[in-house]
């Protein structure tokens, strides 16, 4: 922006003009002058700030007060040109976001956790371990379903409960489905929730 020359209570007393812009000098008190920051350059090299010291003696105007308005309007016009120029210049930022989506496996984990809580209540508040077992990992589970297994025929359907014969405090969750089995090969998800629920 065009400095703070319009906000200062002291009127500028001197202005200097250069090829790139203007320098405004104000006087705070007698015998003491203070240079203001001046928005100067609008050249192809970019914008910059000049101070009065760097342009000392290079064309100070005799009566800056009378020409201040012209100077200001000229600088403002140049500022507008620069502003328009910048609005057309854009820059691109490339961002990389790494996320972990709550995938279906997490939803299964939540479901298993719910099952574990319910199972714990069914077995009298004893310690219950819920374990996910893939049929691909343990082929014996395909034909022989041990007592106490909780069967989910399909992932999309609601769990079918068969907890009446639970004799052990380990409830096994048998999940059918090839995709999940592949995942199980990797994760071998085993939940040991160890919930203690008293009767």
């Amino acid at each position: 922006m065009l400095l703070n020359k319009f906000k200062t209570p002291v009127a500028p007393t001197l202005c200097s003009e250069s090829s790139d812009g203007f320098v405004v000098r104000k006087a705070r008190s007698l015998g003491r002058s203070e240079s203001l920051q001046v928005r100067a350059s609008a050249s192809a090299e970019g914008t910059g700030w000049l101070d009065s010291a760097s342009t000392e003696g290079t064309g100070w105007l005799d009566s800056a007060s009378t020409k201040f308005g012209k100077v200001a309007s000229f600088v403002e016009r140049k500022l507008e040109e620069v502003r328009e120029e910048f609005t057309h210049e854009v820059v691109e930022y490339f961002g990389t976001a790494v996320i972990m989506k709550k995938l279906q496996m997490l939803e299964i984990i939540d479901r298993v956790a719910d099952i574990q809580d319910d199972t714990s209540e069914l077995v009298g508040g004893k310690r219950v371990t819920v374990q996910l077992i893939s049929t691909n990992i343990d082929p014996r589970m395909k034909s022989a379903i041990p007592t106490g297994c909780i069967i989910i025929p399909k992932l999309e359907s609601a769990p079918i409960w068969n907890c009446t014969n639970v004799s052990r405090y380990t409830a096994k969750l048998l999940v059918h489905g090839t995709e999940l089995s592949k995942v199980m090969n990797i994760l071998w998800l085993k939940l040991d929730l160890q919930t203690q629920v008293k009767l």
Binding site: E89, E92, I99, M100, K101, Q104
Partner: peptide
């Protein structure tokens, strides 16, 4: 985030997205 609905895999994994933002130079 591009391709979000297609991310329905089974496994827990980190998914990397490349995003491009265009802003004014100022």
């Amino acid at each position: 985030f591009p391709g979000w609905p297609a991310l329905e895999g089974m496994a827990i994994q980190n998914v990397v997205f490349q995003l491009r933002f265009t802003v004014s130079k100022t």
